[in-house]
């Protein structure tokens, strides 16, 4: 019986460690849960930052290959990003989060995928 218990102990340790040690954790974090908790709190300003959902993000390209796209949505910002790399960049004080999943956007947060 002692051997059995010892075997369980050793194997449990190995299995637990194998699962934990090798999991890199690149799973998408639960932004929805985060958003829901924020919404439930009734606050749209968190830590002094207005919380907004980002609909689309367009890189401010330096090379100009997609510059026309950027220019359409932010001429001044693009000009800033185009120039001196050592110059600090402007960042909004707003906190942007990704929106809900497409399914949840249409059917609401209760809908399971």
């Amino acid at each position: 019986m002692k051997t059995f218990i010892t075997t369980i102990g050793v194997t449990l340790t190995l299995l637990t460690m194998s699962g934990q040690a090798l999991a890199q954790g690149s799973i998408q974090h639960s932004a929805q849960a985060f958003n829901h908790s924020v919404q439930a709190s009734g606050h749209t300003v968190i830590a002094g930052a207005k919380l907004s959902a980002g609909v689309i993000a367009v890189p401010l390209l330096i090379a100009g290959s997609v510059g026309a796209v950027s220019a359409a949505s932010g001429n001044a910002l693009m000009h800033e990003a185009d120039n001196d790399f050592g110059k600090p960049l402007q960042v909004s004080d707003e906190a942007i989060t990704a929106g809900p999943t497409p399914t949840q956007a249409i059917y609401g947060p209760q809908r399971q995928e």
């Binding site: 980002g54 890189p59 960049l89």
Partner: peptide, 28 residues
């Protein structure tokens, strides 16, 4: 446990404004 790129971007908010910030490009 996870690595990605941050890209300086114009971000259009859900109420139609353009603001400056970083978008994160991930493989999840």
């Amino acid at each position: 446990t996870h690595v990605a790129f941050g890209v300086y971007s114009t971000i259009k908010t859900d109420d139609g404004r353009d603001i400056a910030g970083y978008a994160i490009y991930n493989l999840y």
